[in-house]
Design a protein around this nucleic acid. Sequence first.
DNA 1: ATAAACGCCTGGCGGC
DNA 2: TGCCGCCAGGCGTTTA
Length: 274
Amino acid sequence: MPELPEVETVKRSLKKRVLNRKIASVEIFYPNLVKSDLPLFSEKLKDQTIKDIKRRGKFLIFCLNDGYLLSHLRMEGKYFMLPQAEAKMKHEHLRLNFSDGMSLRYHDVRKFGTMHYKEQHELFTSEPLNKLGFEYDDPALTPQRIYDKIKPSQRSLKSVLLDQTIITGIGNIYADEICFCLKKHPAYKVSKITKKTVEKMLSCMQATLNKAITLGGSSVRTYKDTLGFHGRFQNELNVHLQAGKPCPLCQSPIEKITVSNRGTYLCRHCQKKR
DNA sequence: ATAAACGCCTGGCGGC
DNA sequence: TGCCGCCAGGCGTTTA
């Protein structure tokens, strides 16, 4: 599943290929993908040039001359750059045809991905970006602010890490890895957390995400290469998808359990509930 | 107010 | 080999 490091990698890869290309036409094969007004979506994108691509949490933001195309890859969304003459792919749901004969194909087996068109004035003040919490490297993301926000709640550490309204960009893979780095059980109740632990949680998060970005993200079953992208962080995973393998710290076997209704990997010996 | 449960989707996989 | 049912899970919506 593409999370922040994968989306950041896709963003960098896309920037090399689509910047300054002009959209001549838009083809939509699966209309449910588009969550804003459908006729307006195609109409607004047409004849615009992609000036920049940014990222906010797990969203890609295609910056146009006027307005923005938002894209969320959810579980399996991918982009492919192909000549327009190439046949439609099996799970291709949307295509941007550029004026130079190339085309950007959006491919998504499970159709969970979403797209929106947004005007400048509403980009950050409307759904879906208005609900997002801190970017992982935002200087305003301080231990005190996160402590104040999470301390009163009865939630588990993992559900807090997955909550996009607190810090945005973390998904199931990195939540497990951050819990391991912090040496806390994913079901650890954050009502017990200390400010010092929050501080450590933030540094674990930043270290984990930065390392993953450096390595081009993780290529796992639900997320393989696109646009020539091959992540290498999957080789660095300490616990996620490692059930039965020895813990890198103590050699006891990694376990798989369910926390927050999600498959969760941990070392019960190294990661404490208190 | 908060949190758990559900629905959206399809392919891969284990079991028989 | 082939079929069936379960599982993966981000996130918006619904329910408790």
